[in-house]
Every structure is written in C-alpha cells, then in structure tokens.
Nucleic acid binder design. Structure first.
Length: 112
RNA sequence: CCGGAUGGCUGGGCGACCGCUGGCGCCGCGAGAGAUCGCGGUUCUGGAGGAAAGUCCGGGCUCCACGGAAAUACGGUGCCGGCUAACGACCGGCGUGCGCAAGCACAGGGAAAGUGCCACAGAAAACAAACCGCCAGCCCGGUUUCGGCCCGUCUGGCAAGGGUGAAACGGUGGGGUAAGAGCCCACCGCGCUUCCAGCAAUGGCGGCGGCACGGCAAACCCCACCGGGAGCAAGGCCGAAUAGGGAGGGCCGCCACGGCGCUUCGGCGCUGGUGGCAGGGGCAUUUCCGCCCCGUCCUCCGGGUUGGCCGCGCGAAGCCUGCGGCAACGCAGGCUCCAGAGGAAUGGUCGCACACGGUUCUUCGGGACCAGGACAGAACCCGGCUUACAGGCCAUCCGGUAUC
C-alpha cells in the first residue's frame, strides 16, 4: 500500500509547510516531496469525540483516500487528512466529493 | 389480566463485492556456504466488550530492597460462619430499620480505659437541675358579707402537666398521696443472669434488679486481624557510524611543572596529568607569516541514541456432563484453542428481512414515505467493584382482581 506518516515531526512539517484546503467534512494538508512516493497521515483530535468516534472518523478517511487515490494517483506528496465533526456521520459520497475538491484546491494534480 | 420484587441471558440478523490486520502453507525475487532471513504476491483461516471504560480493591508476573521473629509508626478492614490464589468481592445466617407482602437498606467491634464534642432553642445538655407550674404551712400584707375565699411575699414538699430540642434520667394503665414520685402493682422496655437451642453472631423460657449506664468512635482513641516498594514506559536481548570513557600491550623526540616510589636528604627512578619547543594534519596548490586540530597503532571492556526482537497469549481458560454442598464454591471426566496491534487492525458500497421514531392514507385488517441502529474500542493478564446502556427474552416470587 501507500506509505504512512508516523512521526509527530512529519505531521508538524506538513502542517507548517503544506498547502491547506478546508471542507465541511475534512481538512487537507498537502506537502510536495522530492521523489514520487505518496504518503498519508490521518488525524482525529479529542474534539471529535470519544475513542470510538475518533477511530471511526479515521477509518472513513482512510477508506475514502484509498478509493480516490487508486483511481487518481497523486505521486510526490505527503497528504494529511484531519477529521471534523461530521466526518464520522456524513454520507460517504459527500466525503468523497470533499476529498476530490480539497485535493484540487491544494494543487495536487491527478496524474497526467 | 393489572401492579410490583428478585435473579439471569442477549447486546441488531443473513448474504455479495472491494479493502485492513495476525497465522499455517505455497509461489516469485534478493542475501547467505548453509541453517535461515528479508521483500512482494496468493489459497485457506483467526480478528473487540459486557462493560474492552473508570483505574477503586485483590492477585499473577517482573525488577528493586531485605538474615529470622517481634514491636512501633503509618495505611486498611471491622456482627457471625463459610468460600477463595487473594480481597474491602461473593454466599449463608443473625441483629436493627423500612414495606400489606415478595423483598430492600445498613462503616453493624468497644462509650462502666481515658480525652473531647453535643450548635440553636431551652430553666437545665450529664456526679442533674427547677422557668411557668402543683401542694402544704406561716399569718406578714391586701381583700371581706368575718365562715372563708382569692392574690402576693416568705418557708418547705414535688416533678404529674406546660414549653424547648435530634436528644430532658423509662412508657401505658391502676393503686397511692396534701400534691406527687417505681413509692407500690400489671404489662412493655432496659440491665444482670441460671438453664435450653446454636460452631458462632444470637435467640427462647424462667429468675433477679425498681431503673442506674443519654448520644457521637464516618472525633481522638482502645481492641482484633491484614499489609515491604514500584510497575509491561515492569524487565530482558541485539545494537551501525562518528565523537567520547576505561583497561592492557607495542612504537616515537627534548625541556619545565605536577604526581608516585626510593633515599645516605645531595638526589635517583618511574610517569602521554599539564604547558612549551620540535613533529604531523587542515585552511585548493608552492614559500613565508597567521589561524585551527592532534601522540600513534592493535586488542578488549563498559555505557547505549534512532531502531529491531522478546516479554505477548495454554490460562486461578472456556464449554458440556456427573457428583458433593441450601449457596458461594469444590472435585472428577470429556471436548475446544478463542485478537495480539504498535499513528495502533473491524471500514466502504449494495440487497433482503427486523425493532424503535416521525409524517401521512385507511375499508381499522393494514399500507406508503422519510430518517436511522443503546452505551461504547483490546494495548501484560486474571478475580471483583463502580459507572454508562436502545430494545428484546427467560425464570422464580408477592399483592390485587376474575373464574373454578
């Protein structure tokens, strides 16, 4: 599968230097890389709710990212997806639409 | 049938496709002499809870400390008897209180070892006392129809009645009395006690005592029993490169200071601890000047960063049956293997039935549409407790009603 962001420092770098795009159901941070690899990170804060709600939000983000990036790969970026209040409860097509829109806004092109 | 009490079970179901993660096997690639290891793919297969939660008790396990025992301090527990690896849990029994009942609740040892506290109110809050009262006497005063009656003061007797309080030195009834009082009597309560039942807590019959010993120990305290500390970020193993630490050995100049040893006190020997000169290296190259760095080589040891591996899933395990026990629980036999991640695995889409909620139609049988699954996610494990929880199911019991 695609690579993952695991270290706090990697998340901080994406937050400070990456391009951001906020939607109703998610927030995207995208940081270009020097190589062609794509790495993903997921964040759900305590504000989202208890452990069940946070895990569910992250799983839905992961499922949406997997579906979208297998159809439209975006090599050469570190992508961080941050859950919002509605991430766990919104209709899944809305989540997909927000992800696609956010990627375009952040200037992550689908592969030519 | 209605209302209620207690205990237990369940915790959305079935199916399809695409993914995630652990494991056995197979295939491919790479490393290696090999054992094997790493990466990728794939068939099959396992994959959250009754509370996984809070982290409140008790244990296992690990490390640290510790000669044994006792005592003190500190903390905890506290009716009795069981059960258990252990517990403050659980089971059975007792007592007290509540309820028509089934049942429920209880931090439920000791108050004649000592200290302390008992607010407000009230006369009085602890070796009792007397505010309003009740009674008698005196005859002092007032009053008088001169018999007395009433009021006040004083002296004495009393604690029934009033009033305060969470609590007032037993309660109810009768006798008794100037008025009263366990002063006397009956019953109740209380205390002591023979006997009986029980392992015991405790209970019962009887006797004795005229009643004293108020409450608070979740105030100190006393008594009995229990307890070493920290926690899987425990703890163990592996561990590259650079710099740095320690030990031993080989090699290389000089001087001074310091240190150590010996000393006939003149010195002598050892010494990379410090400084200088020399030497080496660097600042692209050569000369000079300047600046910076430095004993060198070999072997071994220790610590150990990022990280990797183990601990980490056969257990006080689960299910079924039988036996013992009122029960908690124990014993025996058989069967089963049931998550092990590490930014952390269960998600997405769809179909069919099912509860619950809302809107609406209705021929009251039901139909249509919309929304949408309670509380909540393993992080070393186990026994409990506590807290959260939509809906559904089962069993036993109590009260009422109806029928026979």
């Amino acid at each position: 599968m695609l690579g993952r962001l695991k270290r706090r420092a990697e998340f901080v770098r994406a937050a400070k230097a990456g391009r951001k795009a906020a939607r109703d159901t998610l927030v995207l941070q995208a940081l270009p890389r020097t190589d062609d690899e794509t790495r993903l990170g997921f964040t759900a804060t305590k504000k989202i709710g208890n452990a069940v709600a946070r895990n569910r939000a992250k799983r839905r983000l992961r499922a949406a990212a997997r579906l979208h990036l297998t159809a439209h790969p975006a090599p050469g970026h570190d992508l961080v997806l941050i859950a919002r209040d509605s991430t766990g409860s919104c209709p899944f097509p809305a989540l997909m639409a927000d992800l696609q829109s956010a990627l375009r806004k952040a200037g992550v092109p689908p592969q030519r």
